[in-house]
Design a binder for these strands. Structure first.
Length: 644
DNA sequence: CGCACGTTTGCGTGGCACTA
DNA sequence: TAGTGCCACGCAAACGTGCG
């Protein structure tokens, strides 16, 4: 005898409600025109724009597939029905109810995949879902994801419960709340967290190598390398997030005061994340010259592309290449077009083919077709972003960063973060810049740096007050770190400690030491701590200025600076001072000649050089003074012809 | 005003597409 | 046909905000 189990009324309702829900989803206009039954929704339209990130210009997709991983993973089957249809309807209705960024929908899909994984026994029927199934999905998320992601997944599972209840899709009303705890961020101080932080820092070998590579680059360096190297230098100077840097305007420099003045500042405008808020990153004094060089080089190397982008903006529908201007219907020989594109016939044909430009006659290209195709792949900047494309600093040609392909004339592309990543991190089959220039870790392994590392590094330096020691020694002061000096590889704070110790033991002479002696013993330590709280090594001595409090008041002119300490008879420092004196004297001779000729500003220039000369002579006099023991730290105090 | 919350963002990864 | 730059998606967490 056959037993026929009739569905209960509640079950019939649930099934009917699911059908109605899916029908509603099918009818929805959310996401624009998509094939509802396709496993992948291509070119999803969203009413909420994504923030401009340099590489984020293409169409968006939603994958209704099992399994995770980047595109192309082999085990990606479609989500089983009827869950599949339910999810599609769910995404459309939630987008309709409240527009979201594409990532938000993808997180929802991720939560659904966890649910899918435990629904085989239910034949993937959402009507049969019970609280324990959500528990199982949540457990799966906790097991597979990090705490913060698992928490987010739990939240989306709870949202699914809400939709099921609201539309009567479940056979019973499901009572389920997200039980996955949100991780607290107390973790910052744990040892694990500290280790994670140091893992993110650039290695000492990387920090040593970068200034050297920067110096090795010259006029013969490929633009692709120079642009990327200067970009990395900017990361060192400012610690931006990579996309904040790559979206700076070409007109980004901000200066306050005059170069040489005490309150001179140099900054770079950029758009902070979230809301595109404009902001200025003020560059630490010792790095201003590095930043200026980087900006000037990048601007120069990207100028052509920017001009093309501007032309396109100002002449809608027209292409800037002369060969593409004129009668749109004119047929041009492939060979002639190739010559204009500075390439060969076959590659020219390839450029057309890629852009689906058909050749109407054998070996001939219709001018208008190619112009249209090239204009169509110019990146589109979201209207909400405060810059037009031609105002971007980082503009290049298609394939400009390609080692083996030629840059395609007449194209406009943005520099994307992966290009910088390949440059400093490398990838399978891609040598990074450290490899190419022959630098490696002390143990011979590969140096790799991640773009965010510089941000961590600058933050850490700022916290430890060691900014000046590191930055100046590497980028602005001495050309090479002297491996033998006792003060190398110590933090600014340690160096200051050393100097204070020298004062206390009588090993330092000069103004600070004199003042200290006039104080009651109980106040001496506190006085020294305020006077010399940090330090860094310069070409000709030790600087006691705290760069955290104020930029360099004399702009690196250490010889005339009252905060400078001489290490008596240190051979390197003495040689550097003598070399500087030589240069100053020859510059002074020129300056004096120009002052006589009446060149504008020359008298001031002469005065500056005279002051520097006097300072250097005093420094050398200290090194020569037989009354001072070698190794004594000598603090010269205020000096200079104007009595500063 | 402080904390918890929801959401947007950056960064990592892997492979397709396209040039030479 | 070989090789890799460029691109898209997933993951984790940093971010701004809103609530108590």
């Amino acid at each position: 005898m056959n037993v026929i189990i009739l569905p209960s009324a509640r079950e019939r309702d649930a099934d009917a409600n699911l059908s109605a829900f899916v029908a509603k989803g099918r009818a929805s206009k959310a996401f624009g025109v998509v094939d509802f039954d396709a496993d992948v929704w291509c070119d999803v339209q969203l009413s909420k724009a994504k923030r401009i990130t340099a590489g984020n210009t293409g169409p968006k997709q939603l994958h209704f597939l099992v399994g995770t991983g980047a595109r192309g993973a082999e085990d990606k089957g479609a989500l089983a029905k009827p869950l599949n249809d339910f999810v599609k309807a769910l995404l459309r209705l939630r987008e309709e109810a409240r527009p979201q960024h594409i990532e938000n929908h993808r997180v929802m899909l991720r939560a659904v995949r966890h649910l899918h994984a435990i629904m085989e026994e239910l034949n993937y029927d959402p009507c049969r879902l019970l609280p324990r199934h959500f528990d199982a999905a949540a457990r799966r998320a906790v097991a597979m994801e990090t705490p913060s992601t698992a928490y987010a997944t739990g939240k989306f599972l709870a949202e699914i419960v809400g939709w099921i209840n609201q539309h009567g899709v479940g056979r019973i009303r499901i009572e389920w709340r997200n039980v996955i705890p949100r991780p607290s961020n107390d973790d910052r101080i744990s040892e694990d967290a500290a280790k994670r932080r140091t893992d993110k820092m650039p290695s000492p070998a990387a920090l040593e190598a970068l200034p050297k590579i920067a110096q090795l680059m010259n006029s013969t360096t490929l633009p692709a390398d120079l642009i990327r190297m200067r970009t990395v230098e900017l990361l060192v100077c400012g610690g931006w997030r990579i996309n904040e840097l790559l979206t700076i305007p070409a007109d980004c420099e901000v200066e306050e005061g005059n170069v040489g003045d005490e309150d001179y500042r140099y900054g770079i405008r950029y758009f902070a994340e979230k809301g595109y808020g404009p902001d200025i990153k003020w560059i630490s004094t010792p790095l201003i010259s590095v930043a200026k060089r980087a900006i000037s080089d990048i601007r120069r190397l990207t100028q052509d592309v920017r001009e093309d982008a501007k032309f396109i903006f100002e002449n809608p529908g027209k292409h800037p290449m002369p060969v593409l201007q004129g009668d749109a219907d004119e047929l041009i020989q492939v060979a002639d077009m190739a010559a204009a594109f500075n390439t060969t016939g076959p590659i020219m044909t390839g450029i057309c083919k890629t852009r689906q430009v058909n050749l109407p006659a054998r070996g001939k290209i219709r001018r208008g077709d190619l112009a249209c195709a090239l204009l169509a792949d110019v990146p589109v900047v979201p209207a909400a972003f405060p810059l037009k494309l031609h105002q971007f600093m980082f503009l290049i040609r298609e394939n400009e960063m390609h080692a083996r392909r030629g840059a395609v004339p007449g194209t406009v592309r943005t520099v994307v973060w992966e290009m910088i990543s390949d440059f400093i991190t490398g990838a399978e089959g891609v040598q990074n810049v450290f490899q190419r220039y022959g630098f490696s870790e002390p143990d011979g392994t590969l140096i790799t740096v991640k773009s965010h590392a510089f941000r961590h590094w600058l933050n850490t330096l700022a916290q430890e007050g060691g900014m000046s020691q590191e930055l100046i020694a590497r980028w602005s002061g001495r050309k090479d770190m002297n491996q033998n000096s006792f003060y190398d590889h110590v933090s600014g704070a340690d160096l200051a400690k050393k100097v204070r110790g020298m004062i206390e033991s009588g090993g330092l002479i000069g103004q600070v030491a004199k003042v200290r002696e006039t104080l009651p013993p109980i106040e001496r330590d506190a006085f020294l701590a305020t006077q010399i709280s940090t330090g860094h090594v310069t070409d000709i001595g030790i600087c006691a200025h705290d760069w955290q409090l104020a930029p360099c008041p004399v702009h690196g002119d250490c010889a005339t600076c009252g905060e400078h300490i001489i290490d008596k008879n240190n051979a390197d420092q003495r040689a550097a001072a003598e070399r500087q004196l030589e240069q100053v004297e020859s510059m002074l001779a020129i300056a004096e000649a120009e002052a006589v000729d009446g060149t504008l500003g020359a008298p001031r220039w002469v005065e500056a050089h005279r002051r520097k000369r006097i300072g250097l002579l005093e420094v050398i006099a200290v090194h020569n003074d037989i009354a001072i023991a070698d190794g004594t730290f000598v603090h010269l105090g205020s000096k200079g012809s104007d009595g500063r």
